[in-house]
Simulated scan of single mutants.
Amino acid sequence: MELRQLEYAVAVAEELHFGRAAERMHVTQQSVSEQIRRLERELGAPLFARTSRRVTITSVGEAFLPEARGAIAAVRRALDVGRRAATGAVDELRLGYAEDLGPRLFQLAVPALHARFPEVRLAPRPMTTPDQLSELSERRLDIGFCWTAEHPPDLASLLVTREPIVVALAAGHPLAASEAIDPAQLSHQPLVIVERDVNPWLHDHYVSQLEARGTTVTIHREISSLDRLLPLVLSGSAIGLTIAGAAAARPFAGVVYRPFTDPSPYADHRIVWRRDTANPAVAALIDIVRELRDTGAFLPPEVPHEPGD
């Protein structure tokens, strides 16, 4: 019995489709089928019932697969511990974060983690979302806090909050007199939004939500942070888009923030980790963030109505 046979069996059980399991494991369907047959011969019974239309798990499979998952996790845990020991970082938690999101994670969740694991050393790194996802997949990062709705199948995520997007305007801009902005009012206006190279999903998500609400989107400039957005807004050369939490944290003289009319465009914040992680500090941080989220601790503060006036 080989580790890859167990991995293929688990993949088929989760996908209930040999072709999708093969795609997930980056091998041919023939390889998956052959390894499953070998495993079934060794067990002396089928794990799956196959028809031309569907795959189902047999009673033998129902009994075997939880043990297979446990064996896979144990092997990966041993590899992870060995790698960490080899680098001298057994007690280190490598944490990636998007710069606009990191402060809330450190203020709210990290103290609770230190209370549970005082010996764990945190190694935080500001990173773009694509870099976080890449380094998680490559096992160079333990957990990330990023803007995303999509990630590879080897990663898992927890929605921390769905945060409304707000409009940043120069105080003298005609739209600043509005209580709320209809997205169509931004048609042909010079907009400043997140760089696509920094986060393709977030950039496209902003644009698609505006277009769905009737906006003809004209991008004046793409920026990587709110600090770079605000001077452009203040000069009157552009209108900015940012999340409500970042707006509340950065009042700026001469700049006002306005919400969108309902339903507001939004951005998702998620913590992301490897599905096969065996690091107890990662599991603890996930639980802490979930508990805080469920109490509303991560909800953005109310945006000041006219911080620039």
Rank of each mutant, 00 (worst) to 15 (best):
L3W: 08
A244G: 02
G61W: 04
P280M: 13
V192T: 14
A246H: 04
G102K: 02
Y257K: 04
S237H: 07
V272Y: 07
A176T: 01
F106C: 08
G19E: 15
L95W: 03
G254T: 09
R228C: 01
L65T: 05
L155C: 13
R196P: 02
T242D: 11
I243E: 09
F18D: 05
H203G: 09
R221W: 02
L186K: 01
A85Y: 04
P124K: 00
P251L: 03
F48W: 03
F48G: 10
F106D: 10
A253Q: 03
Q29T: 13
T242I: 10
L230A: 02
D276Q: 01
S157F: 05
A247Q: 07
T56P: 07
R275I: 14
P231S: 14
R104V: 13
V166L: 00
R258A: 04
E42G: 08
H220G: 06
P152H: 00
A244K: 02
A171R: 13
I239D: 08
V272W: 06
V10Q: 03
D91Q: 09
D262M: 11
Q30D: 07
A73V: 03
A297C: 02
E42D: 12
P231M: 08
D182C: 06
I193F: 05
L299R: 14
A45M: 07
R4S: 07
T56G: 06
V166P: 01
L155M: 03
T51I: 10
L234Q: 14
L155D: 13
F18Y: 15
R258L: 10
A63L: 12
P300T: 05
H151A: 15
D262W: 00
M127N: 06
A89W: 00
V255M: 06
L210D: 09
P231R: 08
S264W: 00
F117K: 04
P66R: 07
P174M: 01
R83W: 11
T218C: 10
D287L: 02
I219N: 06
E23C: 02
R275T: 14
A283C: 00
P190S: 09
L105F: 15
I271W: 05
D197N: 07
D182M: 01
L122S: 10
D131S: 14
A184V: 14
Q185A: 14
I223M: 07
Q30C: 00
T51W: 05
L191V: 10
E15T: 13
P200L: 11
G61E: 09
I165R: 01
S178E: 15
Q5E: 15
H114M: 09
